[in-house]
Design a protein around this nucleic acid. Sequence first.
DNA 1: GCGCCGTAGACTGTAGACGAAAGACAATCA
DNA 2: TGATTGTCTTTCGTCTACAGTCTACGGCGC
Lengths: 225, 225
Amino acid sequence: MLSAGLPQGAVPRLERPGPLRDRVYEALLELITTRALRPGQHLVESELAGHLGVSRQPVREALQRLNTEGWVDLRPAQGAFVHEPTEEEADQLLTVRTLLEAEAARLAAANASSAGIAVLEELCEEGERAVAAEDVDATVACNARFHGKVMELAGNAVLAELAAQVDRRVRWYYTPIARQRGRQSWIEHRKLIAAITERDEQAATRLMREHTEHTRRSYHARAES
Amino acid sequence: MLSAGLPQGAVPRLERPGPLRDRVYEALLELITTRALRPGQHLVESELAGHLGVSRQPVREALQRLNTEGWVDLRPAQGAFVHEPTEEEADQLLTVRTLLEAEAARLAAANASSAGIAVLEELCEEGERAVAAEDVDATVACNARFHGKVMELAGNAVLAELAAQVDRRVRWYYTPIARQRGRQSWIEHRKLIAAITERDEQAATRLMREHTEHTRRSYHARAES
DNA sequence: GCGCCGTAGACTGTAGACGAAAGACAATCA
DNA sequence: TGATTGTCTTTCGTCTACAGTCTACGGCGC
């Protein structure tokens, strides 16, 4: 048997840099979310291609994908423009996010294994440490991982896919105006874990709904100021 | 003034056949949903290109989009394969659909104008006529329009977009095994309209949830036989 | 006869080139 | 002086060509 002679970790799995279009996609998404590319900006294919050191083709394919996912608008015969978020759209996204996350919490309460719950606890502690250390980036990252884990425990791949897309866009809208709201958030996470542990679907739904609604309200509070 | 000399309706607006990739996308989606292309089938770019009378490029871009939307699986260096639905995935899709539709019903109850409600009534009558005439295609089409209208009345574009995607895929899974379930469905639609008219968000949510759950159960009943 | 290796074919991934549409600017005419 | 039109540049949309990679089949050794 081959696997006996070759320990799993020892084989570097022959690093094959996946399809170029995917890497271009990642790169562009990074540039957009970090605001290196501003909303409304005209993305010229040949420019991007030259900048990334590839031909136009992979850039085009990446732009197509970004278009279907709502990151750029593709005007026919004119090119790609970074999508401009509107107040209304942000609100709608937050509504949908609340919906998806709440359902994920319910399913997680129904299906989560004790091992999974342990992971949640762990992430929660990590997040609280990050808050205590006032490490904003770590807090945000940990928050994302926490929600991602809840989604994973829900065990619904379709739901997870949609939520991932919505979440990233929400974060794009949300990040620049409200990177705080740390401590309270993790208290709510704790309560959510308790509900999931007790298999209380209703409580889990309610808590997650309130949790995401909080961030929504704080979004609006900021937007008005 | 130009518009004075040229009556609005008289100018045919010069029908410009949109981007080729979009038409290829539509064509392929049609072929997939009608099962002309079977699940698991290997889609060879050059074949499709030749068959549709275009070059490989637009075909590639259409396949990319179909991939992100879950219609085909793109295996690196191997090509595109029509996605094979699994039982588990169908169930997950139905779950998500229930969720999205129920929320749409709630929002519709909250926001619908009386004009919008009138349209719903109209569609409902049309659907009932189609059922009475045992016109299956018309019934299915009308059902789609009814749900689409509810989604429109909800006034959440993001939600509508997600629901549209999920719905089409659900229909793909669902169509071959259960094109009936007509009469009961429209009775439920009537109840839903009543709830929306009375601005009863809770009832609208509950009715829509039960409604979509019915189709889900009938799916499973079929799947087992 | 069975299994492994090498080769050939096919298909995808990427690059480069050409034609066409849209926008900008300047020249012309009323 | 203002509007209009013609041209010019830029950029997209599409096509064709080439290189890399995977699969399948046939030959060779055991």
